[in-house]
């Protein structure tokens, strides 16, 4: 008998840091601008997981995500002098990461090679996922790893901007407003792109969503 406790999917990481953290962040940005590498190291640690995850979900390749995430933080350091603080540091770094990733994907076109990360052990205990693969899915033999591959293949079929919107909203949990700032477009555009991307995905994954 399976005694594992079924859990909900992990909550997406908090998008923006709290207000007091923002002040501390501004202080760190100021120090980093003056050449303090320790302060910049703190900023990298704060956002490394989110930046890496966004790039990874866009590329479906761990090695590429690793390289691009490093390049993003190096590029951000080089451009730090030009950061005026009009937006949060978080939004600004995200924008750099997104631009780098989209440029990379355009160059890599038709040379997709997936190198997927392992699923966290807790995925087996996710109530929604277990229900999805064991009850409603016509292909009952499907397992989580197969589902992961199908999902990533479907994601790769989307255009870069549509994949990005789905990644930022449905996987990363960012709001429409934050995505609008990152992608430099209004929330209406974000909503319509999200709707279209979900429709596409639903069509690609119809066998697993009936």
């Amino acid at each position: 008998m399976n005694t594992h406790v079924l859990e909900k999917a992990p909550a997406p990481p908090a998008a923006l840091p709290p207000a007091n953290d923002q002040q501390e962040e501004q202080q760190r940005v100021k120090l980093a601008k003056n050449g303090d590498l320790e302060a910049y190291d703190e900023l990298v640690r704060r956002y490394q997981e989110r930046i890496y995850a966004t790039i990874y979900h866009m590329t479906a390749n761990h090695e590429d995500a690793n390289d691009l995430a490093q390049d993003t933080f190096i590029k951000a350091y080089q451009a730090l002098k030009s950061f005026k603080g009009d937006s949060s540091f978080f939004t600004w770094v995200y924008r750099i990461a997104v631009n780098k990733t989209i440029n990379f994907l355009k160059q890599r076109k038709n040379k997709t090679h997936m190198s997927l990360n392992d699923l966290d052990f807790n995925a087996e205990h996710d109530a929604d996922l277990v229900a999805l693969i064991s009850e409603k899915t016509p292909r009952r033999e499907v397992n989580l790893i197969e589902l992961q591959e199908k999902l990533n293949v479907a994601m790769q079929k989307l255009s870069e901007v549509h994949r990005l919107v789905v990644t930022l909203h449905d996987v990363q949990g960012l709001s429409h407003e934050e995505i609008g700032k990152i992608m430099d477009c209004n929330t209406g555009t974000v909503r319509s792109r999200l709707f279209y991307a979900r429709q596409q995905l639903q069509a690609y994954l119809s066998d697993y969503l009936k």
Partner: peptide, 21 residues
């Protein structure tokens, strides 16, 4: 899109190698 969103939540479980960060 509820079921799709449940499925997309699977991507949050994709983690890089341990101690990567």
């Amino acid at each position: 899109f509820d079921r799709l969103r449940q499925l997309l939540a699977l991507k949050r479980y994709e983690q890089p190698p341990p101690r990567f960060f």
